[in-house]
């Protein structure tokens, strides 16, 4: 399902029946049917094509936002858990403070500060999820650190850097990938929300949240203008959640031996 989405994004220019910005005055708010499978919007742009192009933005936004969140989150969480004592405590208290605010609120504040644009929205969403990733990483690293193999590595003579990079990270990253793929959908949703509020992508970009926002004026006359991007967001979020579950099952090399 995600693969389909990715393929769609990559080959959008080939698959889309129309360019996303092609305005057709004659066919404004056309009813879905042959010619325009999902109808057209207020400027007569083909909604199917815009959804297809929108998938590129969506994936891009998700990727960048999760990338930022994951990188910063893993670093902060891992350092906090490994360092322990006061540095770890300090970092985690700071993270806890951020964690008390809803993600979207942080993102909103950041965008207000940076100015509305898609790039800033991505950065904002990315930063807003850092506390989440940091917390999860912290918990995982803390649990892994307790395991004897860390001590065993120390005994063999491995230094801190080696223990973190060679021993801890390989055990921390896979579960984090699962967390990230689940977080991807949240990031997509946040970015769409920001765009919806006019703080993210700016018209005439083909972004799902934005399409939803501009389309809502016509909701009574042409509900398909809203339904299509709404469904697209829903499907994308679902797809990534399912992917996350799949990866979780796949990534565990310890195919749990069942011993009775």
């Amino acid at each position: 399902m995600v693969l389909l989405l990715v393929l769609l994004a990559i080959f959008a220019p080939l698959l889309a029946p129309y360019p996303p910005d092609q305005i057709g005055v004659a066919s404004r708010l056309a009813v879905p049917g042959p010619g325009h499978w999902l109808g057209t919007d207020e400027f007569g742009r083909d909604i199917l094509s815009r959804i297809m192009y929108g998938s590129r933005l969506t994936l891009y936004v998700g990727l960048v936002a999760v990338g930022i969140g994951l990188t910063c989150g893993i670093s902060i969480g891992a350092i906090a858990a490994y360092a322990g004592r006061w540095l770890g405590g300090l970092l985690m208290r700071a993270i806890d403070l951020l964690y008390t605010f809803p993600d979207v609120l942080i993102a909103l504040g950041l965008v207000a500060f940076l100015g509305p644009s898609l790039t800033n929205a991505m950065i904002a969403v990315g930063i807003s999820v850092v506390p989440y990733y940091a917390r999860v990483t912290y918990a995982i690293v803390l649990a892994e650190r307790q395991k004897t193999y860390v001590e065993a590595a120390q005994v063999v003579g491995a230094g801190h850097a080696r223990i973190i990079v060679r021993h801890l990270l390989p055990n921390v990253v896979p579960p984090m990938i699962v967390v990230a793929s689940l977080g991807f959908s949240a990031a997509v949703l946040s970015a769409a929300a920001l765009s919806f509020l006019g703080l993210g992508a700016q018209p005439p970009a083909a972004e799902w949240g934005l399409m939803l926002a501009t389309g809502r004026n016509y909701i009574e006359r042409a509900p398909w203008v809203v339904i299509a991007p709404g469904m697209a967001i829903f499907i994308a979020v679902m797809a990534f959640n399912i992917l996350g579950d799949g990866i979780r099952d796949l990534l565990d090399p310890r195919q749990v031996e069942r011993t009775f």
Binding site: T148, Y149, A152, P174
Partner: peptide, 18 residues
């Protein structure tokens, strides 16, 4: 550490699973 080594109790957790 070259001269003093250790064997742990639980061979299930003392070897890095990955």
């Amino acid at each position: 550490r070259r001269r003093v080594q250790m064997i742990f109790q639980d061979p299930y957790s003392s070897l890095n699973p990955r």
